[in-house]
Amino acid sequence: MMLSFYHKAWPFWVILFFIFSCAEKKSVPIVAYIGDKAITLNEFRDIYQFNPALAAVKNDVSAKKILLNSLIAEKLLALAAIDDGLDKEPTVRHYMLQFRREALIEKFWQDSILSKADVSEEELLQAYIQSKQKRVVHYLMYENESEAQTDYNRLKQGVDFIELAKLKGYSEQTLPVDTILLKTPLPNIQSAVFKMNLNEVHPPLKEGGYYFILKLTNIISDVFRSKDDFERFKPHLAKIIKKRKSASLFGRYINTHFKEAPYTVHTKVFKKIARLLDAQIFPENKAER
């Protein structure tokens, strides 16, 4: 039987987990029975839709037969393993418990987060416009919010951004700069920068464990835009927006359901490690300052 493509996508212990721990619901249509176990229509459909190897099979009926044969073979192997008592092996039970946790997390994410991250046509259009721009910012980074606010007040009083940066140990050549795109994985900064006007300075903005003062210094635009281009990029844009919304929804869920963080982080140690990593990745910054 043609099992290789399915073995790569679904480890043996996953099948074992389903057979060993899941009772079949009578209301769910059954595709095939293997002993007293069943392959449900939902299981068959989900694997068929999300298995890229089946796309290489030109004939749709043949692809489904290949998948069904593979599922039956996997179930038979798993049943044989249970008969031999392999489900009692510590390693196998560890994998089964691990998969159970992952399945619960996936179910929670789908039902409580992803299903609520709707994307509107207006959001897609706005994202399309942003995808045609690159926004260049100079920035100053702070560990302390009050220090960041003090420096921002100095800027409001007329101190030049570059002059302030020099007081912080930078030169015009080493002043931190970054290009912000639609897909930049810094949601607070990305959102703020795309609302700024050229040469505007943004008040201290928290991202992660740090505070940033941002100055928008350049906007590079791609003038080519069309309805066809928009339609072509829609799926990609929707993916970016949905991912960002999901992260925001998850953050709100945590804040709502966990009034106190169910973990502790040694902030000073974390920031020290972050600085060490930064020095390793960007040694030129350390040398120039």
Rank of each mutant, 00 (worst) to 15 (best):
V61D: 10
L124W: 07
L182S: 02
L68K: 08
K134T: 11
P29S: 08
D222Y: 10
L198E: 01
C22F: 15
Y142C: 03
D151A: 02
L79Y: 05
A81C: 08
P187S: 13
L164N: 09
S248D: 10
V159F: 08
K64T: 05
L77G: 06
L277N: 14
D87L: 04
A148C: 05
Y48Q: 07
P204L: 01
D151C: 01
F20K: 09
N255Q: 13
T40D: 07
N218G: 11
K26M: 10
I281G: 05
P29R: 08
Y263S: 03
F44C: 07
S221Q: 12
H94Q: 14
S226Q: 01
K116M: 08
S120P: 05
I189P: 02
P283V: 05
L216G: 01
K134Y: 12
K156V: 13
M141K: 15
D36I: 07
K58D: 08
S27E: 13
Q157H: 08
I240L: 14
T91N: 11
L182F: 07
T217M: 04
A279C: 08
L86T: 06
L198R: 01
K271M: 12
K243V: 00
V57E: 12
D160N: 09
I19P: 02
Q110Y: 11
L124N: 06
G85K: 04
I30Q: 13
D229S: 14
K58W: 04
F224Q: 09
P29V: 01
E89G: 09
T179C: 12
S146K: 12
S120Y: 09
A38D: 02
A81H: 00
R232Y: 13
Y170L: 02
Q49Y: 11
G169C: 05
K25V: 07
D229A: 09
F18P: 00
K259M: 06
K168L: 07
A53S: 11
A274M: 11
K206H: 06
L167W: 08
F224E: 04
A73W: 14
K243I: 01
G85E: 00
A165T: 00
I15Q: 08
N144S: 13
F108C: 05
V159R: 07
W10N: 14
T184C: 05
T267K: 13
A32M: 10
I39L: 11
D278K: 15
A261I: 06
F230V: 08
E231P: 00
